[in-house]
Amino acid sequence: MHVPDGFLDAPTSIATGAVAVVAVGVALRGARRELDDKTAPLAGLVAAFVFATQMLNFPVGAGTSGHLMGGALAAVLVGPWTGVLCVSVVLIVQSLLFADGGITALGTNILLMAVTTVVVGWFVSRVLIKLLPKRVGLVAPAAAIGAFVSVPAAASVFTALYAIGGTADISLTTLATAMLGWHTLIGLGEGVITFLAVGAILSVRPDLVYAARGVIAERDLVIKAKEAVA
């Protein structure tokens, strides 16, 4: 979903740029509380993994493709604030080094792929983890559903931005329908990749998954209680 230069007009791009600067600034503060001995060494690796996986466009229907955005994945693994930072670094490197995503559109792309997908992906996963039974095995499916929802959410934000500052006079209903339709399909891929990646880390070191901490703490309490009874 890398927006190139020219899709959105200058005022809209400046506004999204300002929002992105504020969001990254807030994330830099928030990340301090998340970054401990477990998340800190993992964060760089998660960003590198998101970059690598974003290169892998998978075919969606006829003639189009999609790739991971990674906001939900990063948020679940290292926490939402750190997740915003990880995906922002990926987007900045992609734009400056690989000419992928416009330079004037960098704020827009951070808003869509680093902020929207992290916020929506984290919120949905978190609510599911809280509602579901406290089992480590349910963290990966919760993350997958959060990831799935985050993609059409980002597509909706793009459509809203285009309604405000799009540079071509096109039907907004056509745009909204097409963006939501295709990105719901792409979201399925986002969900599958997130499920596999989170599941893989959970299977070897569940304690490294930020979103699983509450679940593990509760499970350990139950185990301790059972041992105390026995």
Binding site: M1, N57, F58, P59, G63, T64, S65, A155
Partner: peptide, 9 residues
């Protein structure tokens, strides 16, 4: 990887 345009494109 697929060389098709991505969803937005």
């Amino acid at each position: 990887a697929s060389a098709n345009p991505d969803g937005l494109e």
